[in-house]
């Protein structure tokens, strides 16, 4: 069923026209390609993460998916709709949060601003209060609901804005840099909240982020964008397993033994020290072999963190 295909893109391009010189009579313009031939299909079952460097095209992709911008060429369907036609039925089924962009009224208590959601999407006050209570509990929000937004910290404001984005329980929510500028505790809370809403309410999230943990903690599926191209699309865990390497540093008594180990395990030599890079799934076996075949006193094991893996993929391209 097509409706289960949350997102379907085919050879999508988006160019921006930017002014390259300011002149009273004849300013110059240049077309810049932000998205270049992106194609993929994503279903509603899993959250989708979009990862990439600054200027990779993440936010542009979100704007294309939500219908804020029309594509320059190519096909795009979201929940069975062409987004940039902005049909009312489509708008009712999506939510958007853009980190750093406020959407709530600044000067009145947050709860009054949040209540606008039920007027926009037409659900009852009981449903509103029930969802608000549930979301507040999950996000650890208390009396702040009765404070104006201007009296809140960045983290608290972010929680309110995030709640507002999907209090109406849409099928698909786009989060653009949801944890930008937040401390690690708030980031972790938000990630837990996103996972909770995915499980509890079946909301499918599309998350674009610089922060690798946002993707790895919340999205089973991901794409990596670079300069408007897709470098990777698929299972996040598969990506981590494929690129997950451990670094084993071994100090041995003689340089000869170091050479032998280096040659056998394809390592790097540094005097009497050997550095081996192994796929995480092979690490146990390599260590067992080393310990059984050589007289090794001590070794250091360092696992590459997920951020290193994503960085490496981007650097290699």
């Amino acid at each position: 069923m097509e409706i289960d295909q949350a997102i379907k893109l085919q050879s999508l391009y988006k160019n921006y026209r930017v002014k390259t010189s300011v002149s009273l009579f004849k300013p110059n313009f240049k077309d810049i390609a932000a998205i270049r031939g992106v194609s993929f299909i994503h279903d509603m079952k899993q959250n989708l993460g979009i990862f990439g460097k600054n200027g990779a095209g993440k936010t542009t992709l979100i704007k294309l998916l939500t219908g804020i911008l029309p594509p320059t060429s190519g096909e795009i369907k979201v929940l069975g709709f062409i987004p940039y036609k902005l049909k009312k039925e489509f708008k009712k089924q999506i939510g958007l949060f853009q980190g750093g962009k406020g959407q709530l009224i600044w000067d009145i208590p947050a709860i009054q601003s949040l209540e606008l959601s039920r007027y926009i999407y037409g659900y009852s006050k009981d449903e509103f209060l029930q969802r608000l209570a549930d979301f507040s509990k999950a996000l650890d929000i208390g009396d702040e609901l009765n404070q104006p937004l201007r009296n809140m910290s960045l983290g608290q404001r972010c929680k309110m804005e995030l709640m507002f984005s999907f209090l109406h329980l849409p099928r698909l929510v786009f989060l653009d840099e949801p944890t930008s500028g937040l401390d690690i505790i708030t980031r972790s809370n938000l990630r837990s909240f996103i996972n909770y809403c995915h499980q509890q309410y079946g909301i499918c999230f599309v998350i674009s982020s610089h922060n690798v943990k946002d993707i790895t903690d919340c999205c089973k599926s991901c794409i990596i964008l670079d300069k408007g191209h897709i470098l990777y699309q698929g299972d996040t865990n598969y990506l981590l397993e494929k690129y997950q390497y451990d670094i084993i540093s071994i100090n041995v008594d003689s340089e000869d033994m170091a050479k032998e180990i280096s040659s056998k395990f394809d390592g790097k030599l540094n005097g009497s020290q050997v550095i081996l890079e192994t796929s995480s799934s092979d690490t146990d076996e390599v260590i067992t072999q080393l310990l059984s075949q050589y007289n090794i006193g001590a070794f250091k094991l360092k696992r590459k963190d997920t951020e290193d893996i994503f960085t490496e993929i981007l650097k290699n391209e």
Binding site: T66, I68, L86, K88, K91, L96, Q98, K101, Q103, I120
Partner: peptide, 12 residues
Amino acid sequence: YGGLNYHLIRPY
């Protein structure tokens, strides 16, 4: 400044 983004995606 792009505040229109939120308005465009809401059903009003």
